[in-house]
Computed example of a mutant assay.
Amino acid sequence: MPTAKTALPSCLNVGILWGHGSIASTAAATVDALRAMNMLAAMRPGGAQPVVRWFWLRMPQERDAAPPPVPGADLGPEALDVVVIPGWLVPTGPQLREISQRYSQHFGAMLRGHLQRGGLVAALFNGSSLLAHCGLLARRNAALPWVFAPSIVLQSSESGAKTADVAEVIWQRERTWQRDGALWTTASLQDTLAAMLDLLAQTPAAELAQAASHALLFDPQRQLTATTAMETPTGHPLAAGALEQARRWLQDHRNEPYSLQATARAAATSPRTLLRWFAQVHGETPQDYLHRLRMAQAQALLQTTYLTVDDVAQQCGYNDTGSFRKVFTRVAGVTPGAYRQRFKLRTSRKQWLGRQGLPGDDGRV
């Protein structure tokens, strides 16, 4: 693979279990994350080939179960880097246990070997039932869907007894998704994307996963700073209170030179009192909060526009580009130029003409 400013990882192979009753939304959300990464990789120098491939892993007796209409192909499990269990749409715990038992007979040895080789596994929604039946959740922290949690915990306990492992799964009741070592589990369908992108951020394709998460996941600060001409998302004043008034002032005037005195006047308090209480409640000074707002705006502009670094600095309220670069590098860990190369979400202008799509959108090889 050709070398460029941003080196692309070797191809990552992702296997997705599929059969009768599999949940299509979690499988499709997984593929959407992988497609987004390939799209972003195609925008990088030397990114003509996809960096992620995905394949359907089906039960031999369920070949008639059609997977979602997204690109994919069969592949031997020995070549996989990630295995995804999308869960099953079933009404009761006993039915889930029956499915898990049946799938463990075919995929149990593969899953154990996959983890022993250092592979990663995402068990989405009640897909963690299969891990429990295979004895892979004992002593593990896991996020479980409440409606199936008792059945999954029981399965883990029973499987642990068979394998001389005395501890059952540790149900993290307040977590929407959980990582424990090489295992990712989720408690609901809407947590699929966040958990999958976090998993993919632990692979050689980490930078692409992080860039995709910037575009696909909700980020409150980016929502506020994405377009300088727009108000906050509601367009209405925030709740009363000196600190909220100060925070709203900083949001509305983030492109202007910072003034502690002006911020304190907006909050109807003294600068000294504002500094003390702002730090106590928010854990940072008003100026640090302003820098974070500006950096979120700068990151969005670097990812989605063709503005020069000087122009980005100006739009974010920095008259001195050198100062902007120092603050950006301190916050982001890289220079603005390196950040743009690593996380850009727009293709080059020359690709706009005569192109209907981008290479790398298809997972096939």
Rank of each mutant, 00 (worst) to 15 (best):
G235T: 01
P220E: 11
A206W: 13
G241S: 05
H236T: 12
T203Q: 09
L224K: 02
P233E: 09
G241W: 06
R222A: 13
P204K: 09
A209N: 10
L224A: 12
D198T: 15
E207A: 14
L199I: 10
Q210C: 11
L216T: 01
L238K: 03
S213C: 04
E231F: 09
A242V: 00
L224E: 12
T203V: 08
Q221Y: 11
E207Y: 08
L200N: 03
D219R: 13
T227V: 11
R222M: 15
Q210D: 09
T225A: 10
L217G: 07
L238S: 07
L208Y: 01
H214I: 03
D219H: 13
Q210W: 02
A206H: 15
L216M: 15
P237Q: 03
Q202L: 15
L224Y: 08
P237T: 07
L200F: 05
E207F: 08
L208D: 10
A211S: 11
S213G: 10
A205M: 12
D219L: 06
G235S: 11
A242N: 07
P204Q: 10
Q221K: 07
A212M: 02
L199R: 09
D219I: 01
Q223Y: 04
A239W: 03
E207M: 09
M230P: 00
Q202D: 15
D198H: 14
S213L: 01
T232P: 04
A201S: 15
A239M: 13
L199P: 08
T225I: 09
E244R: 10
A215V: 04
A205T: 04
L199Y: 05
Q223K: 01
T228E: 13
A242K: 02
G235C: 04
P233K: 01
H236A: 12
A242Y: 01
L238M: 07
E207S: 14
P237S: 10
Q221D: 14
G235Y: 07
L217N: 12
L200W: 02
A209E: 09
T234G: 06
H214R: 12
L216V: 01
T232M: 10
Q202A: 14
T227E: 12
E231P: 08
L208S: 05
T234I: 00
D198S: 15
E244Q: 08
A212R: 03
L200E: 04
D198P: 06
P233I: 03
G241A: 02
A229F: 13
L217R: 09
T232C: 13
A229W: 14
T203R: 06
H236W: 06
P233V: 10
